[in-house]
């Protein structure tokens, strides 16, 4: 069971109260972009073994989108942070204790 703390309301929300939004900080490419860039935006994901940045929405709650950093191997949550950023905060850029 995954529990994430919503950075907007502070609720410790269960995974089933949230809606997943996939990998975070994916660069958006639209009209005018090359086929390769558009393909990368639409389909290509890092799918890392280890630290992963994700988008989640507090769907059965305040309704806001936010970000989470967690380890895909240990399922450990490194932290959550607001949606209004284009990259993770420095303190969440590597797993705690490593």
């Amino acid at each position: 069971m995954l529990i994430l703390t919503c950075p907007y309301c502070g609720v410790r929300a269960d995974e089933t109260e949230l809606a997943p939004g996939g990998e975070a900080h994916v660069a958006r490419h639209g009209p005018g972009a090359s086929d390769e860039a558009f393909e990368a935006y639409l389909f290509l994901r890092a799918n890392p073994r280890g630290l992963h940045y994700e988008r989640w929405r507090h769907a059965h709650g305040c309704g806001k989108w936010f970000h989470a950093a967690r380890d895909t191997v240990t399922m450990g949550v490194v932290g959550t942070y607001p949606a209004q950023v284009t990259e993770p905060p420095a303190e969440l850029s590597r797993p705690r204790g490593s």
Binding site: V11, D14, T16, E17, A59, H60, G61, C62
Partner: peptide
């Protein structure tokens, strides 16, 4: 607390 009650908000 806004939450989920079984299948609904």
């Amino acid at each position: 607390r806004r939450t989920r009650l079984a299948q609904v908000s």
